[in-house]
Write a protein that binds this DNA or RNA. Structure first.
Lengths: 164, 164
DNA sequence: TATTGTTATACTCTATAACTATA
DNA sequence: TATAGTTATAGAGTATAACAATA
């Protein structure tokens, strides 16, 4: 009975488990790297998002990232205090803050991009360029199948489930 | 300058980011599935570990999973209360508990294996069998490069970093 | 009254530090 | 005193609920 169940499993350590293991470790390493410029992964995600679509309100940005707007406040406070972003109050409807990167913020984003590129090279170090492209094709299809939004980190999403 | 930095990035959404995204989502889905039999991913990991190496003490098991022994107490309480495991006190040194799966625990582990197999099929649904094998080869090499212990979920590890 | 942004509260998770019982 | 297991304490992170300002 147990051997029978066992036989149904395709591999000792399946792709799904490997993906979870690797994903968690890659996230942890990215967190360490991005910590080197005094940011968290969440901060870096906001810089990317604001650069991609400047002028959004906090509510609109939260909707894009599929997270609660309350979560953004402290993160944006940090970035604003650092001079990386501006909250421009809309004169026509003074409840809205339009989010924009400053000059310094654009420079900081360049640093983030450099960190991300180094991270990318690190994680895929044992693969050849052809294998990286192969992997990218496979992963893109899985990401699509799982309904993942390109560029939106799942850490922003509102799940009930356990993190690991 | 910024365009120059951008050009260094190999792809819009690199493999590292995709791995993080997919890993987090896969973990979340597994958590939902395993919740269907009133367990968390952590509980299921303990069942696997105790089955793989029965008779370990709680300290020894914690060391294998690279986590604090205090973290295991409540999880083992749950499994014991459910009749899935036993803490057998060692008569020669009565400080040690030798951990063992019960008959019921073996049955529960079979259910966990079925859930894991369904999860595996779900995550890799869009791939052919040949592609799954290809992916497995690439992921195994990356996991090895990242120093991951086969079968040990990173969720048990003691990092300081952010979870996502 | 409805909406934007903010602050406050409560809850979960976990790391660390006491504590007990055995040796 | 040293170790295995347990319990208690404290901290981080976040989801939810209240709140103030504006429309």
């Amino acid at each position: 009975m147990r051997a029978n169940e066992k036989a149904r499993i395709p591999r000792r350590h399946g792709n799904a488990f490997l993906l979870t293991q690797i994903g968690a470790r890659a996230a942890q390493r990215y967190g360490e790297r991005i910590g080197g410029i005094e940011l968290t992964p969440a901060h870096s995600g906001l810089l990317f998002a604001i650069d991609r679509e400047p002028g959004l309100s906090q509510q609109a940005l939260a909707a894009k990232l599929d997270t609660a707007a309350t979560r953004l406040v402290a993160l944006l406070d940090d970035l604003e205090q650092r001079g990386a972003i501006e909250r421009r109050r809309n004169p026509e409807d003074r409840r809205h803050n339009a989010l924009h990167l400053t000059e310094a913020g654009a420079g900081l984003l360049d640093e983030v991009r450099a960190v991300a590129a180094a991270h990318e090279r690190d994680v895929t170090a044992p693969l050849t360029e052809a294998e990286r492209a192969q992997l990218h094709g496979l992963l893109t299809r899985i990401a699509d199948h799982l309904g993942l939004t390109p560029g939106v980190h799942p850490g922003y999403r509102n799940y009930g489930g356990d993190c690991p």
